[in-house]
Amino acid sequence: MNPLFAFLPNRFTRGAVRLLGAASLAALAGLPLAVHAQGAWPNRVVKIVVPFSAGSGTDVTARLVAEHLSSRLGQPFVVENKQGADGLIGAEQVAKSTPDGYTLGVIPSSAIVMNPALYKMPFDPMKDLVPVANLAGVGLVLGVQPEMPVRNVAELVAYLKERPGQLNFAAGSTFTRLAGEMFKHATGTDVVAIPYKGTAPQVTAMLGKEVQIVFDPFLGLPHMKAGKIRPLAVTSASRSSVLPELPTLRESGLRDVVVETWIAVFAPAGTPAAVVDKLRSEVAQIMALPDVRARLAGLSYDVITETPEQFSQRIRDDTARWAKTVKDANFKLNP
């Protein structure tokens, strides 16, 4: 008799062995099916949370990627807009979702690297989100009134230092306001921020001669081409494909001034590595498509290609840079 069943009466031994043997076989037979089911991502609808309104640059980018993911992976990728608090509400929803690959976020950098310096965060972007893939980015254009006697950044800085507190820049958003503050601190100049309710109104203010300087997210591009705003440089780390003739601020001598927003795919921490790897691979292939690049170029975005390690380092560097800018400017959001 099998010693495992020595405690059983003889009449039960054969039945017990048969029963346990059958159960073991059933468990073994079912194991590959369970593993297969767990690995068959996606097998239902995937929700992509966008923490800004429909029609925004982040939303348009998310829908473009979602369309291609749906086609390539055979399951619907559905965008859900969850705006509010500079992207904080939607980003928090992603961070606190079940990490099964069925809730993702397409989130702009401000909600990840700027908000920690401005808000009491209900989650930790570094710990509670997995950076899957950076998609695209755009900087700002530093522009001035065309009648100003400056044609490059060095001349602008010299002009401002001769006139402390006499000139101003348009601040249509937290992002453009802090871009101006970073520029001021790096150059040791005194320029007054004039608040506006949006980046479109700040372009209107430039055209109306209400302000002398603007940090513009390419909304004023037609006016720059028409000579109504003089562009001097871009604030991104590399030159823009939209205005390739313009130098970056780094090239202009301001090595520590990099202001750009990027849009990326994130997943909740704990999402299976196989899902993250598959999604990362699919997104990389999508972003290499000519039609995708052309569509993003129409929004003044440049596709970003970087390794996961480079993306993670970018997040750390940008978080530190914005924290320093907010502290240096003693900047606080209006209550």
Rank of each mutant, 00 (worst) to 15 (best):
L4K: 12
R11W: 15
A16S: 14
L19H: 03
A22K: 11
L31D: 10
L31K: 03
A37C: 04
Q38S: 12
Q38R: 13
G39W: 07
A40Y: 00
W41Y: 08
V45C: 11
V46K: 09
V49W: 02
S53Y: 10
S56E: 10
D59N: 15
T61W: 00
R63S: 14
V65Y: 09
V65W: 00
A66T: 06
S71Y: 02
R72M: 09
L73H: 03
Q75N: 05
F77D: 01
V79N: 01
V79R: 05
Q83G: 08
Q83I: 11
G84D: 07
A85T: 09
G87C: 06
L88G: 02
L88V: 07
L88H: 01
A91N: 04
A91L: 12
E92K: 14
Q93V: 10
P99E: 09
D100W: 01
P108S: 08
A111D: 03
I112S: 02
V113F: 02
M114A: 11
M114G: 04
P116V: 04
P116D: 06
L118M: 09
Y119K: 11
K120H: 07
P122H: 00
M126R: 06
M126L: 12
D128M: 08
A133V: 10
G139W: 01
L140D: 02
V141M: 14
V141K: 04
G143E: 04
V144F: 03
E147A: 15
M148V: 03
M148C: 07
P149H: 08
V150L: 07
R151S: 15
A154L: 09
V157R: 04
A158P: 08
A158D: 14
Y159M: 02
E162H: 08
G165F: 03
G165Y: 05
Q166S: 12
N168F: 11
A171D: 02
G172S: 01
S173G: 10
A179G: 07
D190H: 03
V191N: 03
Y196D: 05
Q202F: 08
Q202D: 07
Q202P: 01
M206K: 02
G208L: 13
K209A: 14
Q212C: 04
Q212V: 02
F215W: 11
F218T: 05
L219Q: 12
P222M: 01
M224E: 15
M224Q: 14
A233E: 04
S236W: 06
S241G: 15
T248F: 06
L249I: 06
S252L: 01
D256N: 13
V259C: 05
V265K: 05
F266V: 14
A269S: 14
A269D: 10
A269E: 13
A269N: 11
A273K: 14
A274C: 03
V276M: 09
K278T: 12
L279P: 07
Q285R: 15
Q285M: 14
Q285I: 03
V292N: 05
A294R: 15
R295D: 13
R295C: 03
S300V: 02
T305H: 13
E306N: 09
P308T: 03
E309P: 05
E309R: 09
S312F: 01
S312M: 08
S312V: 11
Q313N: 13
R314I: 00
D317T: 14
W322K: 08
K327R: 15
D328E: 13
F331K: 04
F331C: 01
K332S: 13
K332C: 00
N334I: 15
P335R: 15
